[in-house]
Design a protein around this nucleic acid. Sequence first.
DNA 1: AAACGCGCCTGCGGGC
DNA 2: TGCCCGCAGGCGCGTT
Length: 274
Amino acid sequence: MPELPEVETIRLSLLPHLLDQRLKDIQVNETRLRQPLKEDELRRWLIGHQLKEIQRRGRYLLFLWDNQSVLLIHLGMGGRLGYYQQRVDAEPHTHVIFYFEDGAELHFRDPRRFGSICVFPMGGLDQCEPLQHLGVEPLSRFFRSSYLWRHLSRTKRPIKNVIMDNSVVVGVGNIYANEALFGAGIHPQRAACTLNRDEADRVRRSIVAVLRKALRSGGTTLRDFRNAHGEPGFFQVELAVYGREGQACPVCFTPISRLMMGGRSSFVCTKCQR
DNA sequence: AAACGCGCCTGCGGGC
DNA sequence: TGCCCGCAGGCGCGTT
């Protein structure tokens, strides 16, 4: 569920509170995450250390500490990070609690346990398996038209699958892929290699535009997304097609149709998107 | 060898 | 009312 704008929103909401804070303790309630959580490693690397930076790579949050260690957190599908100024009762499915010296707490909550938490030395960042094969950041200068064109032109896969492929471009999930393709006027099932350069660049610019706009709205809250303070995002009211089957296309009023692609819902205006 | 499909996991909403 | 099924979907891995 959290795609790039949601993860970035969480990062921005944590930043002012956690920077330079020192970690006092860690409580692990559940180690059975996507990959088993190594509690002793977590404690050994992080307790007593000061948080120096919070970065994001794709959908991963990277917490950098004063001992050159990196805490990697992925929120999976419905994972949440909750920041609390002082002691609070943990909500159900709170698997890990980070206690800081100023009394603040960071709660990692993930009912479906699709998320993951691991720690590794900063020097080993290059060897960190989950980050190995990630493509470019869509909001960086590396997401150029020549880059996307190269990836589109060599495959017959549907365009929607390609822009959701994290080895091409990171952080674009189902919601923003649907929105970006609507904005570009491209049908999600078009074979990527049939797009011409102009269409490919329309897709690229549409991805950037929709991610930026969603970020400005604090992300999309369909059901459970919240920033670190428990506040929802507001981009759901601006969604043009996602989840709007049967509703009028905001441009031409044709009813939005839903089609399944590999078990995932795609929403499309068949008049605007070709 | 690219590309598809499945399994992981729980909550919730719709239908009967 | 209550139960069951389908859907949500990122990611890694196995299969074709």
